[in-house]
Lab assay of single mutants.
Amino acid sequence: MKKYKITVYDEKTGEKHTIEIEMSEEELEELAKKLAEKHNVKVRIEKV
């Protein structure tokens, strides 16, 4: 498992949230996809 920083940005409201999380790359990609689809936000992932 690796550490990642996830930034979620909502273009409508301008809200931006960043968290650090430790998980596998596959789980992370699935999480990012679900966030983007369900909440209509942009998701950026960076390795820490």
Rank of each mutant, 00 (worst) to 15 (best):
M1H: 12
M1C: 10
M1E: 06
M1Y: 07
M1V: 11
K2R: 12
K2N: 15
K2H: 15
K2Q: 15
K3A: 04
K3P: 01
K3F: 06
K3C: 07
K3Q: 04
Y4R: 03
Y4A: 04
Y4T: 02
Y4S: 02
Y4F: 07
Y4Q: 02
Y4W: 10
K5L: 14
K5T: 09
K5V: 14
I6T: 00
I6V: 09
I6Y: 01
I6P: 00
I6R: 00
I6E: 00
T7I: 08
T7P: 00
T7G: 00
T7S: 05
T7Y: 08
V8D: 00
V8L: 10
V8C: 11
V8S: 02
Y9F: 10
Y9T: 09
Y9A: 01
Y9D: 02
Y9P: 00
Y9N: 01
D10K: 02
D10C: 12
D10E: 04
D10Q: 02
D10T: 01
E11R: 03
E11P: 12
E11N: 05
E11Y: 09
K12G: 10
K12A: 14
K12E: 12
K12L: 15
T13E: 02
G14I: 00
G14Y: 02
G14Q: 05
G14W: 02
G14K: 05
E15Q: 11
E15R: 09
E15W: 09
E15Y: 10
K16F: 14
K16P: 05
K16S: 15
K16H: 14
K16T: 15
K16E: 15
H17E: 06
H17M: 13
H17G: 03
T18S: 06
T18P: 00
T18I: 13
T18E: 08
I19P: 00
I19H: 04
I19Y: 14
I19E: 03
E20L: 14
E20G: 01
E20P: 00
E20W: 12
E20V: 14
I21F: 06
I21R: 05
I21S: 03
I21G: 04
I21V: 14
I21L: 11
E22R: 05
E22K: 04
E22A: 07
E22Q: 07
E22I: 12
M23C: 13
M23F: 05
M23Y: 03
M23N: 01
S24R: 11
S24H: 13
S24L: 13
S24D: 13
S24T: 13
E25M: 08
E25S: 08
E25A: 06
E25G: 07
E25I: 08
E26G: 10
E26I: 09
E26P: 10
E26K: 09
E26A: 11
E26T: 13
E26V: 12
E27T: 08
E27H: 09
E27R: 07
E27C: 05
E27D: 11
E27N: 06
E27V: 05
E27A: 12
L28E: 03
L28F: 08
L28K: 03
E29C: 14
E29V: 11
E29H: 14
E29Y: 14
E29T: 12
E29R: 13
E29K: 13
E29W: 14
E30K: 12
E30L: 12
E30T: 13
E30P: 03
E30V: 14
E30A: 10
L31W: 13
L31R: 02
L31Q: 01
L31F: 13
L31P: 00
L31N: 01
L31D: 00
L31V: 08
A32E: 10
A32P: 03
A32S: 10
A32C: 14
K33V: 10
K33G: 08
K33R: 11
K33S: 10
K34Q: 09
K34S: 11
K34C: 09
K34F: 08
K34T: 13
L35V: 04
L35Q: 01
L35Y: 06
L35D: 00
A36I: 10
A36G: 12
A36R: 13
A36H: 11
A36W: 10
A36D: 05
A36N: 09
A36F: 12
E37D: 09
E37R: 07
E37K: 13
E37I: 05
E37M: 07
E37T: 11
K38V: 10
H39P: 15
H39C: 09
N40W: 05
N40Q: 06
N40M: 07
V41F: 06
V41C: 10
V41I: 11
V41P: 03
K42L: 08
K42S: 13
K42N: 08
K42G: 05
K42A: 06
K42Q: 10
K42C: 12
K42V: 14
V43K: 01
V43S: 02
V43W: 00
V43D: 01
V43P: 03
R44Q: 12
R44E: 09
R44S: 14
I45D: 01
I45A: 02
I45Y: 03
I45H: 02
E46H: 04
E46K: 05
E46S: 06
K47P: 14
K47I: 15
K47Q: 15
K47M: 15
V48I: 13
V48T: 05
V48M: 08
V48A: 06
V48W: 00
